[in-house]
């Protein structure tokens, strides 16, 4: 589908938001509070921010919840009764004000969950989301989308992409059929596209490394002292993985109450010491530097090779969240020069 461009005035944007809400859509939009911005379910339009650089948490929770119910079961003497989760009941969700990197993050997750075996839990959620993107007009020194092949005005993963123009109105690019359907239903709010392009209204994010070069270097860098030297300060928490829009490692756990229970899928992290430990006590990744190496290799070497997608979108969340300043950008820049 060819991208169609329209103008939506500032006041009309509010109407669009309210119209979507009035139709019973659940909306997930960024809200700033106490100096932090996070996506929130069904905020009022006045609360929604358009000025944030990045939320602390990613949007993966919407398609890969931090706790996901896989099956329910009942046990008694006569046996076990298992009920599948009815995935047709998944509600549709409008993601509002999503930065282009985050929108592309869904593709990275898709490359994991829809690779080989198709994960229906993930897919049924993915089908139900509509992504209304918002180009970035601000960035900070943790942002590096341009280094992983994305850009502050990229349309990948968006159904509609909004870009704030100098007038305060928004340029709307309608990218998919899903996006078109939203526009059609509120056509009175959209006007003919202006001559002003989005290019002049985007954040300037300079490319800092070539990811192809990093991938190439990683192939021979498994035994390199780089890993130990640069991860001594890593304390092995899962903050990076949990805020990452593309990290998808999980654990499967049962939770029971009396005779009833559920099998749940919960987020996990390859940075945790017990992640790979065998029952025998043997641990293939015994020390933290091996786990840090795994994190980088998985995103920049294994995923490009197996899943034809990078496992990183350059949002910089992990660097901002890390309590010990393990800055992924800094490390990737060094890895490019290795």
């Amino acid at each position: 589908m060819e991208i169609e461009k329209k103008l939506i005035k500032k006041a009309s944007l509010e109407k669009l938001f309210e119209k979507l809400q009035a139709k019973g859509n659940k909306i997930f939009a960024p809200v700033s509070k106490d100096g932090k911005t996070e996506f929130q379910y069904n905020p009022s339009y006045a609360e929604v921010t358009y000025d944030h650089i990045q939320t602390t948490q990613s949007l993966k929770n919407t398609v890969f919840p931090k706790i996901e119910n896989l099956i329910r079961f009942k046990t008694d003497r006569s046996g076990v009764e298992v009920t599948e989760v009815d995935l047709t009941q998944v509600q549709s969700l409008v993601l509002w004000g999503v930065h282009p990197c985050d929108a592309a993050g869904f593709n990275a997750l898709k490359s994991i969950f829809m690779w080989d075996y198709k994960d229906e839990y993930f897919n049924s959620r993915l089908q139900k989301i509509a992504v209304i993107g918002l180009s970035c007009h601000k960035s900070d020194d943790n942002c590096f989308c341009t280094s992983v092949g994305l850009n502050p005005g990229g349309t990948q993963g968006c159904d509609i992409l909004l870009t704030k123009l100098s007038s305060g109105d928004f340029l709307a690019e309608i990218i998919t059929e899903k996006g078109k359907a939203i526009v059609t239903e509120a056509s009175e709010l959209f006007e003919t596209a202006p001559s002003e392009t989005k290019e002049g209204n985007l954040a300037q994010v300079n490319q800092q490394f070539s990811h192809e070069k990093v991938t190439k270097n990683l192939a021979g860098a498994f035994e390199h002292p780089f890993w130990v030297e640069n991860s001594l300060r890593c304390i092995g928490c899962g903050a990076c993985a949990f805020v990452c829009p593309a990290c998808a490692c999980f654990d499967i756990q049962d939770e029971t109450k009396g005779k009833n229970g559920k099998r749940l899928r919960c987020w996990d992290s390859c940075g945790f010491g017990l992640f790979t430990i065998h029952t025998s006590g043997h641990n293939p990744r015994e020390v933290q530097s091996q786990r840090w190496r795994q994190r980088i290799l998985h995103k920049f070497s294994y995923m490009p090779e197996r899943n034809e997608s990078l496992g990183c979108i350059g949002c910089g969340r992990c660097s901002r969240a890390c309590p010990v300043d393990m800055n992924i950008l800094e490390q990737l820049v060094s890895l490019e020069k290795l």
């Binding site: 499967i252 996990d268 992640f275 790979t276």
Partner: peptide, 12 residues
């Protein structure tokens, strides 16, 4: 190796 999902997703 330790496994959870069995089909190449969980990363373990």
């Amino acid at each position: 190796n330790r496994m959870k999902c069995g089909f190449g997703k969980c990363g373990r």
